[in-house]
Design a protein around this nucleic acid. Sequence first.
DNA 1: CTAAGTGCAAATCATTTGCAACCAG
DNA 2: CTGGTTGCAAATGATTTGCACTTAG
Lengths: 135, 135
Amino acid sequence: MARKARVSAAMVAVMAAGERHAWTLEELHSALGEQGQATDFSSVFRAAEKLAAEGQARKVALDDGRTRFELVGAHHDHLYCTRCHELVPVPCLIERERFAAVERSTGAAILDHHVILRGLCRDCRAAGPESGAAP
Amino acid sequence: MARKARVSAAMVAVMAAGERHAWTLEELHSALGEQGQATDFSSVFRAAEKLAAEGQARKVALDDGRTRFELVGAHHDHLYCTRCHELVPVPCLIERERFAAVERSTGAAILDHHVILRGLCRDCRAAGPESGAAP
DNA sequence: CTAAGTGCAAATCATTTGCAACCAG
DNA sequence: CTGGTTGCAAATGATTTGCACTTAG
């Protein structure tokens, strides 16, 4: 390499700090800003893409139209609260054997996986079935 | 209701025809066009959102920046080929018991789930490790 | 009449890309 | 020098929204 990747490094540090499990580009961008590591959004974007390409990070897709990134070392599946949008990490729910079975039956090669559970997190569940749905 | 939802109905019909497992809005839009049911893109968008809100359809998020929709009755998990982008349906990979375990350990309520497997489909796998990666 | 559904055009939002300036090796 | 990085600005692409119009009920 010919130059230090300041943004990438800072990003990995932020993500490793573990205040969150998966980060949107905006979250990463503002997190860096708060660290005094202000950077351009596009740099965050490119650094994230690069980390993903290199296998250091992975993209996490939820259905809220924003791509998130998480460090590969911290992989876990996710429980997405449809009320407060919190993303709770949960251990892998699929047994290894299952993957092999799918590869056998489909002939495909599975390289990665991601499980998204949708529902209500502990707090929102406790808050009761309705929240601010009064018309 | 005060009026027939022509687009919604046509969309459900198209999706139920089962030529595909999950549809992007564009795919639905053009599929309707080919059926002689030409409609505006925004109508497709709104109909899809409505179906999702009513629970008839569900959003499927991959990390390719496009939201897909599938009929709820046709639920299955997916194997996404990172080379040809085909989406292969696979049976649910998680045992019911696992969901209960997560609900117990996290206190959350799980309402839905989706598993995305990433890798190479049968054909792409057979095509060998490299394809058009010549620089 | 009345509200739901539709079409068209314009606005938004989240990315992506082009390009010139920069800098550690 | 040299190639990887960065910032700024502008381009994309996909999704959303405002508004007027239409029509089943």
